[in-house]
Design a protein around this nucleic acid. Structure first.
Lengths: 75, 75
DNA sequence: ATGTGACTTGTAGTCCGTA
DNA sequence: ATACGGACTACAAGTCACA
């Protein structure tokens, strides 16, 4: 269950590493708690659109690139 | 403030009307309360990604089409 | 058909740790 | 540098009544 949160988390993690940032860096730069970033990437929480935008801004990408395709959710 | 929630709400409303649905219809089809749909469209709440997907599914569109461009948030 | 107030409940999100 | 947990607090989620 919660394929969606997991898929979003994976994408954020992938993009974060591509930017050469640690969870700590992302947390600091996006003004959120480090432990929460971990939870997001592990797909343990279902983030709000506002957080999605803050993360996308720090990772210098479009918010939509962090969202999985609908088809990806039925694997 | 909260340009983001308002922008998302406007897009959802626009798309809902394009589908010829009432707030009631959207609420029923997406399994949420009618009054809550109204609040979303008025930008009073900051929805989660999961809600975004449920709404996009009912409105037969990609979730990303309901998200505003970053540039749109600084008007 | 929609807006809004006054709620309650669930979970998003924080802050403290341990390993 | 990350995973994971407990114990919080803030706010999203959901309901109902009435304009």
């Amino acid at each position: 269950m919660d394929k969606l949160a997991k898929a979003v988390g994976e994408r954020i993690r992938h993009r974060r590493k591509a930017c050469g940032l640690s969870q700590d860096d992302l947390a600091l730069l996006s003004g959120m708690d480090r432990s929460y970033v971990g939870r997001i990437e592990r797909g343990e929480v279902n983030i709000t659109v506002e957080k999605l935008y803050r993360i996308a801004t720090v990772l210098a990408c479009d918010p939509s690139t962090l969202l999985p395709e609908a088809t990806e959710l039925y694997s």
